[in-house]
Amino acid sequence: ELTQEQKDRLQFVMDSYSKNRIPQDIATKLVLQDENNTDENFVFLTDMATSHVQVLVEFTKKLPGFQTLDHEDQIALLKGSAVEAMFLRSAELFNRKLLEWNTDLLEERIRNSGISNDYINPMFNFYKSVGELKMTKEEYAVLTAVVILTPDRQYIKDKESVEKLQEPFLDILEKLCKIHHPKNPQQFARLLGRLTELRTFSHHHTEMLLSWRVN
């Protein structure tokens, strides 16, 4: 069972995670724009990525202890985790059908945005492999906190302080896995395994943006 302190922490993070939404005007754009050309999809995806980052920063600011970190370390954590958190959030949106809009339409726009299939196919494979874990909303939220508070990001000066902030979330995540997936003792290890996969996306994302810009 979670301790009372862990329950309070989880509740606090869930409240903030629930507000973690892409603004309606961007969502509306997806539905209203009939024209489906590469340039428009490019602008659409960059707008959506920007919103993703802004929403992520708002979520991060409320993580207990984050605001006590050195300001440049705060930026280094966010820079190091933004892409991973974005892919994790996308995986959640696709798998839990959180989008009020059709995910098929979104997939079509992503596939028709000038990004090479070499990058897109592994991304949709990742969504599928995350989907197989049948994660709950709590697990997504806490895993996102774990991703953001990763102490070994580049340029972090005070790794120890970050570690101290991440640990309580790892403990909660381990318990949640046991509570929600009693028949699957490997759940916690599998979730952490997905983080390794996420890291490769961070690397691919940089290459992908470069090739996209050239095109």
Binding site: V43, T50, V53, V57, E58, I75, L78
Partner: peptide
């Protein structure tokens, strides 16, 4: 436009609560 801002700019502005761009 936001699409011309780099990731770090977006993060710095958002940390300060500045969403004008």
């Amino acid at each position: 436009p936001a699409s011309n801002l780099g990731l770090e700019d977006i993060i710095r502005k958002a940390l300060m609560g500045n969403y004008d761009d």
